[in-house]
Deep mutational scan, measured.
Amino acid sequence: ILEEAISVVMSGKMSVSKAQSIYGIPHSTLEYKVKERLGTLK
């Protein structure tokens, strides 16, 4: 489920907030994982 949510957000089909409510994943977790994948994590 997490992988799917990350893919959807990264493809631009859904915002982090929308994915959070649909997949039930905490906003901070989703945002962290997306940034980690994009290489923008500081």
Rank of each mutant, 00 (worst) to 15 (best):
residue 10 M to V: 14
residue 13 K to A: 09
residue 20 Q to I: 06
residue 26 P to T: 05
residue 9 V to P: 01
residue 11 S to G: 07
residue 28 S to N: 04
residue 31 E to F: 02
residue 40 T to K: 12
residue 7 S to P: 00
residue 20 Q to S: 14
residue 38 L to W: 07
residue 12 G to L: 00
residue 24 G to L: 02
residue 4 E to C: 00
residue 36 E to T: 05
residue 11 S to V: 04
residue 40 T to H: 13
residue 38 L to M: 13
residue 38 L to R: 12
residue 42 K to D: 15
residue 26 P to W: 00
residue 15 S to W: 00
residue 30 L to I: 10
residue 24 G to Q: 08
residue 37 R to V: 01
residue 13 K to Y: 06
residue 38 L to G: 13
residue 33 K to N: 14
residue 2 L to W: 07
residue 39 G to P: 07
residue 2 L to C: 05
residue 10 M to Q: 07
residue 7 S to A: 12
residue 25 I to S: 03
residue 9 V to C: 09
residue 37 R to D: 03
residue 18 K to E: 15
residue 23 Y to C: 02
residue 26 P to A: 09
residue 41 L to T: 14
residue 17 S to K: 13
residue 25 I to W: 00
residue 18 K to M: 09
residue 16 V to F: 08
residue 2 L to T: 06
residue 20 Q to A: 15
residue 28 S to L: 09
residue 1 I to F: 11
residue 34 V to I: 13
residue 27 H to E: 15
residue 4 E to K: 08
residue 4 E to A: 04
residue 4 E to T: 08
residue 21 S to I: 09
residue 32 Y to Q: 15
residue 2 L to H: 01
residue 28 S to H: 11
residue 36 E to R: 04
residue 3 E to N: 07
residue 9 V to R: 02
residue 10 M to Y: 02
residue 29 T to D: 12
residue 30 L to P: 03
residue 15 S to C: 06
residue 14 M to K: 05
residue 20 Q to Y: 08
residue 40 T to S: 13
residue 9 V to G: 02
residue 34 V to S: 06
residue 8 V to W: 06
residue 6 I to F: 06
residue 6 I to L: 11
residue 36 E to W: 00
residue 29 T to Q: 12
residue 40 T to E: 15
residue 11 S to H: 10
residue 41 L to A: 14
residue 1 I to C: 12
residue 36 E to V: 01
residue 16 V to T: 09
residue 7 S to N: 13
residue 35 K to A: 12
residue 6 I to K: 05
residue 12 G to W: 00
residue 3 E to H: 02
residue 6 I to E: 05
residue 16 V to D: 04
residue 8 V to L: 11
residue 42 K to W: 08
residue 12 G to A: 03
residue 27 H to G: 13
residue 2 L to P: 07
residue 26 P to N: 10
residue 37 R to Q: 08
residue 19 A to H: 03
residue 3 E to Q: 03
residue 30 L to S: 04
residue 2 L to F: 14
residue 11 S to C: 08
residue 30 L to Q: 04
residue 31 E to H: 05
residue 33 K to A: 14
residue 3 E to A: 03
residue 38 L to D: 13
residue 1 I to E: 13
residue 17 S to D: 14
residue 33 K to I: 07
residue 7 S to E: 12
residue 25 I to Q: 04
residue 33 K to Y: 15
residue 11 S to D: 14
residue 17 S to M: 12
residue 42 K to R: 14
residue 19 A to L: 00
residue 3 E to D: 08
residue 33 K to Q: 11
residue 10 M to D: 01
residue 22 I to M: 12
residue 20 Q to V: 12
residue 25 I to T: 04
residue 40 T to D: 11
residue 17 S to A: 15
residue 17 S to P: 07
residue 4 E to F: 02
residue 6 I to C: 02
residue 41 L to E: 15
residue 8 V to G: 09
residue 5 A to C: 00
residue 23 Y to R: 02
residue 31 E to V: 08
residue 35 K to T: 09
residue 22 I to H: 14
residue 40 T to C: 13
residue 4 E to V: 05
residue 16 V to P: 09
residue 7 S to L: 09
residue 8 V to M: 15
residue 10 M to P: 00
residue 33 K to W: 07
residue 33 K to V: 09
residue 26 P to E: 12
residue 16 V to N: 04
residue 39 G to K: 09
residue 21 S to G: 12
residue 3 E to G: 02
residue 26 P to K: 10
residue 25 I to D: 02
residue 3 E to P: 00
residue 35 K to S: 10
residue 23 Y to G: 05
residue 4 E to Y: 00
residue 31 E to M: 07
residue 35 K to E: 11
residue 31 E to Y: 11
residue 35 K to F: 10
residue 21 S to A: 15
residue 34 V to R: 04
residue 17 S to Q: 13
residue 21 S to C: 09
residue 17 S to C: 08
residue 11 S to N: 09
residue 27 H to C: 13
residue 1 I to W: 08
residue 6 I to R: 03
residue 27 H to D: 10
residue 26 P to V: 00
residue 2 L to D: 05
residue 15 S to P: 08
residue 12 G to I: 00
residue 23 Y to K: 02
residue 8 V to H: 09
residue 20 Q to F: 02
residue 14 M to C: 08
residue 39 G to E: 13
residue 31 E to I: 02
residue 16 V to Y: 11
residue 18 K to D: 13
residue 20 Q to T: 13
residue 32 Y to H: 14
residue 8 V to N: 09
residue 30 L to F: 02
residue 40 T to N: 10
residue 37 R to T: 08
residue 32 Y to F: 10
residue 15 S to T: 14
residue 14 M to I: 08
residue 15 S to Q: 03
residue 21 S to W: 04
residue 11 S to W: 01
residue 39 G to S: 12
residue 38 L to I: 06
residue 12 G to D: 06
residue 14 M to T: 06
residue 26 P to Q: 08
residue 7 S to H: 06
